[in-house]
């Protein structure tokens, strides 16, 4: 069972650069310049938003190439998410025994 699911997960990580094929943003997730261009102004709230000071902003990292940064992001994200459930399981187990 574990083998199958880890296999799918690994396969998806291998093909992750396919996610970079398009540099089109998602609808409604444009940058501030987009509003300036389309509307002629940036709505108050959007202009004011500071954005998050994220360590791997836009799934990239430092001077790594787009593809390497995307691979690293996929691995870091997957590991962090797995770690959350792993730690929670250990904490619950410790409490119950």
């Amino acid at each position: 069972m574990k083998k199958r699911i880890y296999f799918i997960l690994a396969a998806l990580i291998v093909i992750i650069p396919l996610g970079l094929l398009s540099d089109s943003p998602a609808w409604g997730e444009w940058g501030k310049e987009y509003y300036k261009k389309i509307l002629g102004y940036i709505p108050y709230g959007i202009a004011k938003a500071k954005g998050i000071n994220a360590p791997m902003k836009d799934y990239s990292f430092g001077s790594l190439s787009d593809i390497s940064g995307y691979y690293l992001s996929a691995i870091v994200g997957a590991v962090l998410i797995f770690a959350f459930f792993y730690i929670l399981t250990k904490v619950l187990h410790a409490k119950n025994s």
Partner: peptide
Amino acid sequence: LPLIGALSAMSFIIMMLN
């Protein structure tokens, strides 16, 4: 745990596949 953890990680990965 392995299944829930892996499925959640998988959700993260497929959201990167634009």
